[in-house]
Amino acid sequence: MTTSASPSPVLSPEHLARAYSYSAYRQLITTLMAEGKTTGTTQSEALTAYAQLNIQRMERLDKQVQVQPELLAAVQGLQQRYVWLVLTEGWCGDAAQIVPVLEKIAQASQGRITTHYLLRDENLDLMDRYLTNGGRSIPKLIVLRADTLHEVAQWGPRPAAAQELFQAMKAAGATHEEFAEKLHGWYAKDKTHHTQQELLRLINEMS
């Protein structure tokens, strides 16, 4: 999580034209799944299988996530309006665990936060400005002032505790299947707590 002040608008008219609302993003993933596909430039049976699981994860989170009281008070107390720009893809497991939480928080803000979702592979010029340890890790949240589209903060690709788990498994030479099992097990036990707490700190720093 970092706060910053970019010297120029982050979101170009071209980016905005490619952006999805949350409902349109979800519909895109579902439509592609009916064709045996997922989002992104790479297609494989494995990625499609991950995307299918992610649809189920997002559906569950859409129904179950409750914004924590402190976070609810913080977003409803914002004195300015913000755009939350989210880089994501349908096949990304971390995105499936986090994007519904971002949307719930934005919806709870009573119009103070609006969301725009961009596909990573279609916006590499933007993605490459927000690398994590040199990689194009997603989801990535970029917080912009609504009036100027200047950047004020960024967050992602996952809560710090999950990132530490990921780095430890990577250092130990874990397979993708081991990564997925451990990380999604962590998300299931955490029940969005760390994600919401980190976003609360980000919002408090913005205020």
Rank of each mutant, 00 (worst) to 15 (best):
H193K: 14
L149M: 09
Y130K: 03
Q197I: 10
E205R: 07
G134L: 02
M33E: 15
E89M: 09
R158S: 02
L32Y: 12
M127E: 04
T115E: 00
L126S: 00
E122I: 04
T195D: 11
T88Y: 01
W186L: 11
Y187L: 06
L149Y: 09
V83S: 09
V152G: 10
V101Y: 08
G135F: 12
K63E: 12
I55T: 06
V99A: 10
G111C: 05
G134H: 02
L124I: 10
Q197P: 05
E178P: 01
A188N: 06
L141Y: 10
Q163Y: 06
H176G: 13
W91E: 07
P139K: 13
G36I: 08
T195G: 12
P157L: 04
T114Q: 15
R145Q: 14
E45F: 05
R120D: 01
S12Q: 04
L118G: 02
D62T: 01
R112Y: 02
A49L: 12
S44G: 08
T38F: 08
Y130G: 02
R112F: 03
V101M: 12
D125C: 06
Q97M: 11
L11R: 08
A34V: 06
P9D: 01
R120S: 00
Q64F: 02
S23Y: 03
N133I: 07
Q154I: 00
H176V: 10
L126N: 00
H15K: 03
M127R: 01
F166E: 11
T175N: 03
L85N: 05
L78H: 07
G90Y: 08
I138V: 08
H150I: 01
A162Q: 14
Q163E: 13
S12V: 02
Q64R: 06
N54S: 09
N123K: 05
G36P: 06
V67Y: 01
Q97A: 13
S8D: 13
G93A: 10
S137R: 10
P157H: 06
D147A: 10
Q56Y: 10
R201N: 15
Y130I: 07
A108R: 01
